[in-house]
Amino acid sequence: MDVDFSPIIENWRFFAGGLGITVLLSVISAATSILAGLVIALLRLYGPRWLSVALVFYVDTMRAIPILVVLVWIYFAFPLLAGVTFPPFWAALVGLTLHIAAYASEIIRAGIESIRPGQTRAGLALGMSRAQILRKIILPQATIRMLPAFGSVLTMAIKDTAIATVIAVPELMHRAETVAGQSYRPVEVFTTVMVLYFLVLFPVTRVVDRMYQKLAHLGRS
């Protein structure tokens, strides 16, 4: 077989732009997911009972439905119901956040619950308010324990943004499809993009693994 990488070299700016959108979308959606996850976790732990039941239902629903289905529904079906349309990037951001926040909330809940209740009681005995205890005792310790897991959220976000190609977000995966279709060189294009994704993801997972090893003992109480 003949190999021809010229379509990739000619379109390198197009690919670089796609990579930029992939990185931007995954970093923003990881950040919004962690923020939303924190709110969900706190409401589940300290909020009223009915709200926590509703949030458990939401989290389990997101664990049951594929991200592809969430993205497609938000982009194609939701506008028919609500009468507003989102551009693909924003639909993807909303869909990814809805999906990943459910996982992030579980990580944060487990992190908060891992701080022994004796510490809360000690704080109360010292006359601290519940909010003070959360801010000064629980969250600082829990955050260190959760840091590596937040890294996992980022890798999850990077991989999931590739699925946003189905709603035509012009990220790396979608641009690969475009160039592969125009140049009839799918093997070269997809192989190159595979290397690109690997080069982005591998350092992130390496850092996450290092963090698991380095930080594991710090959070111990």
Partner: peptide, 22 residues
């Protein structure tokens, strides 16, 4: 293991679709 854990599955699917026949 490291290779396939660090790739989006959707890309592996496309790749297999185009590369396997060749």
């Amino acid at each position: 293991v490291e290779f396939f854990r660090n790739l989006p599955l959707i890309l592996v699917i496309y790749w297999a679709f185009y590369v396997m026949p060749i």
